[in-house]
């Protein structure tokens, strides 16, 4: 049975989104994602290590033509940092489908919903397709849906 998963008008064969943090190497990450069948992988944005040019690159292990990158803002605690991260991600390669996380608490990792809604409003105006990390409050979810 065909089971297509559609996000932002793009069809995917798998509903699984592969996380890519905490692996030992990009090779291990790539093998795990391949085995999982995920069509989408999360990616983070970080400084290039200027001193160590021999470090492997994430993009050498995941062909952006065959797998969808989902830039995300894990670790951002305010709208400014989250917006900067996603704008940089877009500039690397035009990605507009993004995962927005604006955290409010370091221990529980609960989202800061005020900053999350503000960020979503800005991102949507700039043409991003935003997947939002949010609380399970239905009123907040409705507010986000209406952005």
């Amino acid at each position: 049975m065909e089971d297509i998963f559609t996000i932002a008008n793009k069809n995917f064969n798998s509903r699984l989104i592969g996380g890519t943090g905490k692996y030992k190497s990009f090779e291990e990450t790539a093998n795990a994602v391949k085995a999982s069948g995920a069509d989408i992988v999360t990616v983070a944005v970080r400084r290039v290590n200027i001193l160590d040019k021999d470090q492997p690159l994430f993009m050498d292990y995941f062909d952006p033509k065959s797998i969808t990158y989902l830039p995300n803002t894990a670790g951002c605690f305010n709208s400014h940092d989250a917006l900067r991260t996603l704008r940089l991600a877009r500039e690397i390669g035009g990605w507009k489908l993004v995962k927005l996380e604006v955290l409010g608490d370091k221990i529980t990792l609960y989202p800061n919903m005020i900053e999350t809604i503000r960020s979503t409003e800005v991102l949507v105006k700039e043409g991003f397709k935003v997947m939002v990390y949010c609380t399970d409050d239905p009123l907040m979810a409705k507010r986000l849906e209406n952005v």
């Binding site: 943090g21 990616v43 944005v45 989902l70 995300n72 803002t73 894990a74 670790g75 690397i92």
Partner: peptide
């Protein structure tokens, strides 16, 4: 100047 790239994460 800040030069950034994608890494695993999230």
């Amino acid at each position: 100047v800040e030069i950034v790239q994608f890494i695993g994460g999230g």
